[in-house]
Amino acid sequence: MSRIAVTFDTLRQNNRKALIPFITAGDPEPAMTVLLMHELVNAGADIIELGVPFSDPMADGPTIQSSYERALKYHVSLKDVLEMVAEFRRTNTVTPVVLMGYANPVEAMGYQKFVIKAKECGVDGVLTVDCPPEECEEWIENLKQEKIDTIFLISPTTPQIRIQQMAKRVQGFVYYVALKGVTGAAHIDLSEVANKLAGLRSYISIPIGVGFGIHDGATARAVAEFADAVVVGSRIIAEIEKSAEEEVLVNVYRLVKSLRSAIDKVGIKHRIARIKR
């Protein structure tokens, strides 16, 4: 079983939902990334999404784009990101790491070489925003052979027929994009997302995470009521951006910890309900 599957299994047994924070590798500077990853785990992250900086992030909003720009000032490459994961793995062998980014850095490295390196460095999943399954079937196969999950996005505009087709290919977890728009956009319609997820579950048996537009404990908790995982990106990046260098770790810890406890209220509520019954 993959690290991602083990993580979701354990969570389910403990009646908990996954918290998946996103940070950009190299932001605010390369030396901070591995420290931040450990801090995310300390604060209660179950899976880490690590953004691979790209010069032209079309699907991201201004917050994440500027984090990429900060990282790119240090020329943080895909190779550097993989090395950061390897360093993280020296002391943490349980928390899954999913690389999130765009196709071109992988194209530049070469798909085959990437698969080998990613395996070596301990990457568990790959989410390539601008590479839908139709364009990378061979690559998905190669990743699968190395037990690296390919994570796919499903959006509010994805029609049912496509969801059915995608259901055959999804691995690890499915990432449901809670709103039309880019990362960090305004508000999500919770009841609409809840309805959509209920629909998705008739085709998709693996865990479903929800992201885009989750900006505080209250939204995180509300989403955790119906999702298996809550992905928070822009909110954390904004925290990094506004923190003084020496306060980045403690501020991110505090934020993620608060998201964690908000999400855990859902599990606790359900447990109390069961005891009362």
């Binding site: 010069s55 490459s77 992988v106 530049a108």
Partner: peptide, 19 residues
């Protein structure tokens, strides 16, 4: 060759795939 703006084509990019 690389991927940008929705298609695979020739791109002016550095060795890391940044445009």
């Amino acid at each position: 060759p690389g991927v940008l703006h929705g298609n695979r084509t020739y791109l002016i990019q550095d060795e890391d795939g940044q445009i």
